[in-house]
Design a protein around this nucleic acid. Sequence first.
DNA 1: ATCAATACATGAACAGTATTCATCTAATGC
DNA 2: GCATTAGATGAATACTGTTCATGTATTGAT
Lengths: 326, 326
Amino acid sequence: MNTVHVLMADVRVNCGCFMRLDIRHWEMLKAIADLGTLKNAASALGITQSALSHRLAEAERRLGSPLFDREGRQLRLAKAGIAMTQTALQVIPALQRAEHDFMQASTNAASVVRFGVAAYSCYHWLPVFMKHLDATTPAIQLELVASATQNPIMNLLEGAVDVVMAPGLSETPGIKSIPLFQDELVLVVPAHHHLASKAYIVAEDLLSEDYLTYSKTAQPGFEYERFIRPSGVVPHLVTVVEVTDAIIELISSGFGVSILSRWAVGSALKGGKIAALPLGKQGLSLDWYALVRASDATQSHSAKLAQLMAAWYAQKIGTTNPLPHD
Amino acid sequence: MNTVHVLMADVRVNCGCFMRLDIRHWEMLKAIADLGTLKNAASALGITQSALSHRLAEAERRLGSPLFDREGRQLRLAKAGIAMTQTALQVIPALQRAEHDFMQASTNAASVVRFGVAAYSCYHWLPVFMKHLDATTPAIQLELVASATQNPIMNLLEGAVDVVMAPGLSETPGIKSIPLFQDELVLVVPAHHHLASKAYIVAEDLLSEDYLTYSKTAQPGFEYERFIRPSGVVPHLVTVVEVTDAIIELISSGFGVSILSRWAVGSALKGGKIAALPLGKQGLSLDWYALVRASDATQSHSAKLAQLMAAWYAQKIGTTNPLPHD
DNA sequence: ATCAATACATGAACAGTATTCATCTAATGC
DNA sequence: GCATTAGATGAATACTGTTCATGTATTGAT
């Protein structure tokens, strides 16, 4: 018969059972997952194959059953071992980051905040901001994590990145959104394109255009969601290019058009080789936010950086124009 | 000058530096955070105070700087140590769960899935479902985690619970939503209440009512979001009761009214002491989902349970009425 | 089929680490 | 001022993990 255990306590201070596996066993799990074989994993960990074999045997002895199936001379993850490996893949990097951060924090006194941009791999504003950062808050160092673009929220929650700049806020629990500035989605076309002279674009204009987009995973890409899809229009040909600068280059060479954020296009507009056109009569606005973990929302360097960014953008808008360029 | 490090690689297979801290050091961090003093932590870990003191000293030696400030004869977490402790508090339970699950999975062959309900602490349907589960899939055992009601998404992501039953789907990355059944929000009043005879309720009807709600953290409860707030009506008094059965009891005793899901009210309606009235002419529908981690979305017992629940509810609806009761 | 190479397992000796026991120091409270 | 509490320290001991040398089974090539 099925039994129900009801746990009312939020925190089990001590579950009675101690940890069976050592950190080295988890490290081993990750290494084997990454490298495939015991031998490679062993050399990556800087120990002999024999040692790792012993280590694996010990782990399985402690757990009471095999983590891997021995298929011929190969190790294959046992079904139950999959979850263990996934845990290892999550936990080991988290621990390494924590240690690394701690040592940074205690030696330098200057702390590194990992930073990523959720959409458009577009960093033309960074040098200027960093100059500002360096002048006002030298205690914070930036580490740019380009790979955080793929799945920013997960990367943020898992700690691979500390601050993400994202178009739109996040309702995800555990994430706090700090507003940065208001932006606008625009159609980007070559300067001499037949659409370049229009006051604004309607979805039908895109019917016969080659369309370039920056993301295939389309964290429901807003331009598609908000402009193209509602109209039922299907653009002619869609090409995926992941870097904004490359998209702009392609557009200016006549390979197609794209919908990007006016901020992302940024300085490229000044070159005069491309034009940016509002979408619809009113235009489609887009609010940028800095996302931080809720646990970092106060008193952390992450939060500090987010606030500095917000202040910097606010000042940009105040002194120049409604869209902060570099 | 500020420097930028750009990391392009998604996975750093091996960051060159190995782990400095042992799992016991992280365990120690968690124990000290939980218990406050070295002495208590030591006894909780089943070792002497001396051993833990050595252990702490070793951890600090490896990291190169102190985790705690010694204030008098007391240990106080150093600023940089806070993040370490937080990591420990997250990671240690995750590892314990993983180990526990693995041993469950490999010994019993029957696996425990932790289950929670995101809103309304309401489990009248559970015994019947468990009977069904036991008959069809005895390999899956249920563990009911009542505390997951508070912040279901975080609990799910962190692994404190494996499946959450929630009203509405979740867009959170890393979470997959599996539709269960359609429900309806209703106003629950005592059977002889002056509103009980109405065909349906409008927001203004609530103006002079004492209003009971089920959640104090108020993830601004949907009933509020969808019915009360749009109308600008502010109900008379809001009393917080966290358990649905208690709310129903209070309502039937004339302490107030509440908006709940028809499913949550469930069998209580049959008693005849309360009445449930649709909200607005069309009623306000509510879709229930089973939420699982995306990493568990296929081939895991969590996913299996979610599918079983969906199938069970589908069958309930087919054979009885559009709302699955027990 | 045979032989070499590959991938992992095993046993004994050794090295390194963690734990205990006994003792010590410095705050704190009565 | 004296007992008490919280933690630190040093030396001896017990334990755990590593290496080295070697073994076994599988795979692929000749």
